Amino acid sequence: MSFESVKAHFKQWNREDDVMEFETLTATVEQAADTIGVIPARIAKTLSFRGEGEKAILIVAAGDAKIDNKKFRHTFGFKARMLTPDEVLEQTGHVIGGVCPFGLKNEMDVYLDVSMKRFETLFPACGSPNSAIELTCDELFQYSFAKGWVDVCKGWEEAGFRETVVVNNDRL
């Protein structure tokens, strides 16, 4: 049902036919990158955290980014605590491996991490462990009804630099 709720979500922009369904798994960043044929950093992963009270929040970040606990606490005012798989399903309506900020079961605050801004397009999941859609950052912001851009991740700046060095064949 989750995949269908995401397709229905994209119908309001006539983008439901752009949702891709694959024969192979896209449940992890690596699987998605292999299936789609892009570097792992271009996979937009959605992470679920306990918010204040009963409400959970979603952070969408580049595939090579990791949550920085200090930045997270400074931004949101509470410790980063991820939801359990059962809580993720209950809050989002999506199973782990297909979690995305679209077609959500409950209204949730969605934030986009700046780690994604270095790419023209990214590939978030679409409610199942074998789906994705290609979106620009602006589209991702619009379609997810994001509250804003945040800087709560680490590790991606260094990874991006290494990719540049390899691409340009430069040595420092």
Rank of each mutant, 00 (worst) to 15 (best):
P124T: 07
D17G: 06
E163I: 12
L89W: 03
T75V: 11
D170Y: 14
N130Y: 08
V29T: 13
P129A: 04
N130G: 01
R42H: 08
I67S: 07
S2M: 01
F119I: 12
F22S: 09
D18N: 14
T35R: 03
A65H: 07
H94Y: 05
P85F: 04
G148R: 05
E23I: 10
L112V: 06
D64E: 14
I96D: 03
D18Y: 11
D151S: 14
T46F: 00
A56K: 01
D170W: 14
E16A: 04
R73T: 14
V60P: 00
A65G: 13
S128T: 06
S128G: 05
L135K: 09
G160M: 13
E157V: 13
E54S: 10
R171Q: 15
C100M: 03
E21D: 03
Y111F: 13
G98E: 01
K70L: 14
K71R: 15
A146P: 03
L104S: 00
E4R: 03
A44Y: 05
E158G: 11
F72I: 10
E87H: 03
S144R: 02
I67R: 07
A56F: 00
K11V: 09
G63K: 06
D138N: 15
A159Q: 13
A33Q: 08
I43E: 00
K55M: 04
L89N: 02
V152H: 06
H94I: 04
S128M: 03
E4Y: 04
E21V: 11
E54A: 09
F22L: 13
I133N: 02
W149S: 06
E163P: 00
F123D: 00
I57P: 00
V114H: 08
S144N: 05
